[in-house]
Design a protein around this nucleic acid. Structure first.
Lengths: 202, 202
DNA sequence: TACATATGTAAGAGGTGCTAACTTTTACAG
DNA sequence: CTGTAAAAGTTAGCACCTCTTACATATGTA
């Protein structure tokens, strides 16, 4: 099936890897109009192909969106890794770094972020997506345990990890949905992330 | 079909207050299918009127949804008041109570909750909605200040109120979007609400 | 040449929000 | 008990968009 890396332009027949182009168009549209106002037809227009073309690469609309989710998760995981690498083992700065990546991702890709969480039904039955989600949350748990000086995740770590998750998750949504501004709060993101981390890890 | 004679509403013409019936149908549909898959036509079918009828009562689709939001906010505010009344002044139980109402509302009316926050564009320009939002957040700030023993809201209170908000907001979304279950965490809501309140107010 | 893959054409079947114009019901003044 | 005007509904229709498929065609490989 997939025989060549996507970096080369002449790897395919008519287009240069239409599948990737469609995913990219989908991602852009999700950002611009939201996942619920995304339409296959429009992605086709943007990719410069007929409305029938996607169905040789994807089962249906949902599969296109799922691909966008998956790639988004991978980007986020990569960012987490990159950010973690800047800080020494076991420090609270690493906890903060994870939160920063979370919120920053939401700010930079609010459409994909919203798509990843919630609204668009299923997801629970998409094994691959669930697996990636678990993997990410597992990484947070491990980091929390390591802050405690342990390599083994215990119940208290899971609790703390979940609190951190709730926090940054809410923070992200309030931020991208503009609720912060309607209520006249000026958010110093670095400050609040540190506050949160310290209070949860205490 | 399903025409149960209304309880003596003499101020109505054909139906017993079609406006209210349409809002109720809209609310139900928002719960069942999400705000983005709500259609005026379907609300009409459910209310048993023609598709043109709503336009005698609402400017457009958005105005119908906004009414659902507004009534949702009022319900939530009422619940906050009711719950607060159970606890003595200045205790942390009052802070916890506010969080409980927030999460419980999300669980009971996830569709309306999602509609209230995010996705559906504007809102920022809907003066009435913004005002109600401010009012609610102001109540939380006041409660935080009172925990400190003060009647005057200071910056530190706003910070704490915002942290609490982020927390319960994220918690609510993770809960209703089913992310909790996919990650194998069992949430004791009362426990986590108390943990959060204590850590933020410390 | 034969073949497989990738795309295009065209259409089916359905849905949407909203408006114009018409009809029925109600409220109220005299 | 009327006459009238407004309110609250209905019918019909415009203009548009959607996802998906069956079939035809173009392109590259062997």
């Amino acid at each position: 099936m997939t025989k060549s890396p996507e970096t080369s332009k002449k790897t395919s027949y008519h287009h240069g890897d239409l599948r990737a182009q469609l995913v990219e168009a989908t991602r852009q549209l999700v950002e611009e109009k939201g996942a619920d106002h995304f339409s296959v037809s429009e992605a086709c227009r943007r990719a410069g192909v007929s409305t029938a073309a996607p169905y040789k690469h994807f089962k249906d609309k949902e599969e296109m969106l799922n691909q966008v989710i998956l790639e988004g998760m991978h980007r986020k995981q990569q960012q987490m890794q990159d950010e973690l690498a800047k800080y020494p083992d076991g420090g609270i700065d690493r906890i903060i770094a994870l939160g920063r990546v979370y919120v920053r991702f939401a700010e930079q890709e609010p459409g994909v972020f919203r798509l990843m969480f919630g609204l668009t039904e299923d997801h629970e039955n998409e094994d691959q997506l669930v697996a990636e989600g678990k993997r990410t949350f597992g990484a947070v748990q491990a980091e929390v345990a390591r802050y405690r000086g342990s390599e083994v995740v215990e119940d208290q770590d899971i609790d703390r990890a979940f609190m951190l998750w709730s926090f940054v998750h809410g923070l992200s949504f309030l931020q991208i949905d503009g609720k912060v501004s309607t209520v006249d709060v000026s958010v110093d993101m670095e400050h609040i992330l540190r506050e949160i981390a310290e209070r949860v890890m205490a």
